[in-house]
């Protein structure tokens, strides 16, 4: 009688037998069914070729080295890239200015223009040919001249 008998008068009165049963010959057949399941498992297990199993660690090391080399190369290129303005097209510059125009101050622009002063415009030789063109195109050349 175990130590629970004092606290469990009802429990101790119950027959301590196994109330469950199994189908007939269950335990006689079970070892065979288990061996069969193991056999099936072994047959369905994917067998890796010996050479692959042998060289797998070496392949992993080689792949790691290549990955590091590629990352290192592109990292170096990225850090040391000399993307100077001279390589940019005028379209790219215009796009840049348009995009960042709100951040560029007018004074800064004027300063830049002062530094790289363009030759004075000379409109004296505005030929008749040009004026005729502007009249033909219905453009008010007087106002253009005024602006300039």
């Amino acid at each position: 009688m175990d130590e629970s008998s004092n606290i469990s008068p009802r429990l101790t009165k119950i027959k301590r037998g196994n109330p469950y049963s199994v189908p007939e010959n269950y335990f006689e057949e079970l070892p065979g069914r288990i061996q069969e399941a193991i056999h099936v498992q072994k047959e369905t297990e994917p067998v890796k070729p010996f050479t692959f199993r042998f060289i797998r660690p070496q392949l992993a090391v080689a792949a790691s080295i290549i990955a590091f080399a590629v990352i290192g190369y592109f990292g170096y290129k990225l850090i040391h890239s000399d993307n100077s303005a001279s390589e940019l097209t005028s379209g790219e510059i215009a796009e840049y200015v348009e995009y960042y125009s709100s951040e560029i101050e007018e004074d800064m622009f004027i300063e830049m223009l002062e530094e790289n002063k363009l030759p004075e415009a000379d409109y004296s030789d505005l030929s008749d040919e040009i004026i005729t063109y502007l009249v033909d195109e219905n453009i008010d050349y007087q106002s253009i001249i005024e602006i300039l």
Partner: peptide, 15 residues
């Protein structure tokens, strides 16, 4: 519903 349970009423209650 277990057809392989052979216990009596009190054993069922215990289970």
């Amino acid at each position: 519903s277990d057809s392989f349970f052979n216990g009596d009423e009190i054993q069922m209650k215990l289970q």
